[in-house]
Design a protein around this nucleic acid. Structure first.
Lengths: 213, 213
DNA sequence: CGAGTAACTAGAACGTGATTCTAGTATATT
DNA sequence: AATATACTAGAATCACGTTCTAGTTACTCG
């Protein structure tokens, strides 16, 4: 069901289904898309969809993977131009943010799948998280691997949280970006880190925190 | 529909509905609970539930609020005993973690409601986030308000992310706790902050990062 | 090549629940 | 008391994911 011997025609059909899902996500949310519609868009029978995917969630997890592949390319295409870890990390993270900004329903999809009960879906999601995680860690040059990983874990959490706030309409995409840059500064930048500044008396300016309802 | 003039009998009925939801959450997940069951448990007609709440999600958002009230009490009851911001923040956060550990379905509920389309639900959730946020900020004494807020935003994001990993079965509740303490250290503790240590050459030991699928 | 199996198709059917509706009864307001 | 509003039990509706049916290809391998 995952990676086995499929005839070219089958691979093509399966691909068409995934592409159809991605196309429809461009117009509508996961919740508003019916599996039947995906089948129609893919020019395939409804039963065929269920032949390749165990559930709607499983199908859309694969859609997410497909999208993530192009995301990865976008993120990794141009080299990072920053001179500090903070700059580089901000840059990759912001590339991700921009990608999601272009496809809000993908952001919503991630949030939705994170609470999925389908084991296929969650497993695919975990693999995906691993990939982006590695990319982010790769942006950090000046820290040992373990510390870099710990920093990325935190930043990734902030990314997820802020994206959710954004799709919920609570904050703007600009705020997402700003908050992430700020969080990274807090973690890596000696100029703005509370840990570094603590007991120094230097006052700092921060971005405004808008979390009203 | 929210806070208006209700007769005592009405308030009692509404309360009974919310309590019923909370009771059932002790046995089963949001997804496994039918609105009808809540009505039965509350000794109320199904229609009455919909008289007070616009949807199942709205109802359970209110359930969450009720639970959060006791959570708040638990968290704030005993004074924080730490001497540093990091210790105090770790402590409040860990009280939250323990509360969720006792009620896994509440943690799942939060995750679920975060992706809700019901405006009532999302608004309630936002208000709730504000409250816990304030509690956390209160644990920080040695930083200016703005910086404290920014730190808490990050920590809160990590809390949410790790709790989701936990309810998804990806990590243990102990790991949730450890990861949070670690994240707080990264942000506030000069002993383990990359920002403070950067270019110092001091190597550091970190907790193991288990994010496998 | 030709039988047999697996995949595909169009479409109907099923199952689960949330949500809404009905008709009658109780309660509250003035 | 008169009327509106709330409440009740229960039926009816609706949406949709998922499964099933019957008939039609397409592929495999002997």
């Amino acid at each position: 069901m995952t990676t086995a011997k499929l005839t070219p025609a089958q691979t093509a059909r399966r691909d068409r289904i995934i592409d159809a899902g991605l196309t429809l996500l461009g117009e509508r949310d996961f919740a508003k898309i019916q599996v039947k519609e995906v089948a129609v868009e893919a020019q395939v029978a409804l039963g065929t969809v269920y032949h390749y995917f165990s559930s709607k969630e499983h199908l859309f997890a694969e859609v997410l993977v497909r999208w993530a592949a192009t995301l990865r390319t976008n993120i990794s295409r141009n080299p990072l131009r920053g001179t500090t870890d903070a700059q580089r990390l901000s840059q990759v993270i912001n590339r991700s943010v921009r990608a999601f900004a272009r496809q809000p329903s993908l952001a919503r999809l991630v949030a939705r799948l994170e609470t999925s009960a389908d084991p296929f879906a969650t497993e695919i999601l975990a693999r995906l998280a691993q990939t982006t995680n590695d990319i982010y860690v790769g942006a950090i040059h000046d820290l040992d691997a373990d510390t870099a990983q710990r920093v990325v874990t935190v930043v990734d959490a902030v990314l997820a949280a802020r994206l959710r706030s954004w799709v919920a309409g609570r904050i703007s995409i600009t705020a997402v970006s700003d908050d992430l840059t700020d969080a990274i500064g807090l973690l890596l930048d000696p100029e703005s880190s509370p840990a570094a500044l603590r007991r120094t008396g230097i006052s700092q300016t921060g971005i405004s925190q808008t979390a009203r309802s």
